[in-house]
Design a protein around this nucleic acid. Structure first.
Length: 136
RNA sequence: GCGGACGGCUGGAUGGCCGCACCCUUCGGGGUGAGGAAAGUCCGGACUCCAUGAAGCGACGGUGCCGGGUAACGCCCGGGCGGGGCGACCCGACGGAAAGCGCCACAGAAAACAGACCGCCUUCGCCUCGUGCGAGGGUCAGGGUGAAACGGUGGGGUAAGAGCCCACCGCGGGCCUGGCAACAGGACCGGCACGGCAAGCCCCACCGGGAGCAAUGCCGAAUAGGGAUCCCGCGGGGCACGGACCCCAAGGCGGCUUCAGCCCAGGGAUCCGGGUUGGCAGCAAGACCCCGUCCGCAAGGGCGGGGCUAGAUGAAUGGUCAUCCACGGGGGCAACCCCGGGACAGAAUCCGGCUUACAGGCCGUCCGCGCAC
């Protein structure tokens, strides 16, 4: 019943390293107004998603990295939308603690089929590159 | 064994690591977390608000063989009738056409108080004396048309025919028997009247008020309609006038009527306070699930015991790795190896149904054919 130990412990050690580097836990965007503001700011395309990013004014919610997700009906039915949103959440969880800047709002927008099909490691690279573009 | 009918179940499994939402916590952690359809939003309810109450009528909408089940239903079960299939079984918009209106294309002589094209029979007249022509009468068996032609088949009968007469079948009527009923069976009477469509209007019976959890209630923040209370004030009469008081109207409150109840034109003051955004409640213990037992052919119901089973709101229920399980392709005699790869689909107030989508797999009952005994 018990699977091989060696591989599992190796993987867990690697991820524990990653966790130690987390600076601040990103906050989820929920208000429609925040999404509308982000949509008017900078945007950067990627094969499996679109990134929108905005540096907030100093008085609103200082210090935090904030992230939101959008999957419209263009992405597909409810199952496809939920799946796309979860994959976007997954890459944000991997990338944002290292590359997100405090005081910024980010919004990830899903694409039909591509968001569900592109391999996750490639999407992580895509997001790192897109963040670098937006911060420049 | 092959082909088929019906009913039910399942909807990848286990583990490691990293996450998300909610609940509990002794703050170490622990627990729970999508479906059979969560879907379509097509029916029926619960719940909430709105409409003054009761009865009747009307309008509109729905349902439509009978009995039962249910909170209720357009659902389910059992039965009847009609149709399909060798059969297991399946299908059915299945009340009324002697209340009325309307329609019945094309074809056909004729499509609804029947009618007479060809034909059949016959009377009279005429002549060219014929299987002739003309006029009249009797007919609907035969012809052809159609979805449908005013009962069908056989016999008698006749000038030829015809329910004209008879037998059987069909149809109608009341009666008897069985059944709670739909309905079925029987003998009797009637020579046949009543074509079809109600999925065109309609009639009959039964049911139904409207809107929906973005309902609705509460809390906090900025501005106008509305409501409550008080004051002034309003038709006629009782008093000669005015006021107070009393009585009586008129008018208003559902589509209409009756009864009951309530309100009174207009002006002023005070108080409460709408839509919107955010938060909280509604919001998960229920026509609930499981087991046993009794009643019932069944749907289902009674009793007893046990269980607590998602609660998000830009909306959690995931990502990844390993092994296994289906499945597809390739290689190999084979064990096996390699590659691909997981149906339909995601709760949003909650239940009972219906409908639609669905890879593959499993179980049970039954039918037909073939083989063996």
């Amino acid at each position: 019943m018990t699977p091989p130990e060696a591989g599992a412990t190796g993987a867990s050690a690697k991820v524990a390293d990653g966790l130690a580097a987390v600076s601040s836990c990103p906050e989820i965007l929920r208000k429609r107004a925040d999404f509308l503001k982000a949509a008017r700011a900078k945007r950067q395309g990627a094969p499996a998603f679109m990134l929108q990013a905005r540096k907030r004014a100093p008085e609103e919610a200082p210090g935090r990295v904030r992230i939101g997700y959008t999957c419209s009906k263009k992405v597909g039915n409810a199952v496809a939308r939920n799946r796309a949103k979860r994959r976007l959440r997954e890459i944000a969880r991997a990338v944002l603690p290292h590359h997100g800047r405090p005081g910024w709002d980010y919004v990830l927008i899903g694409r039909k089929d591509a968001t569900a099909k592109r391999p996750l490691p490639r999407m992580i690279e895509d997001l790192e590159r897109a963040l670098a573009q937006v911060h420049r």
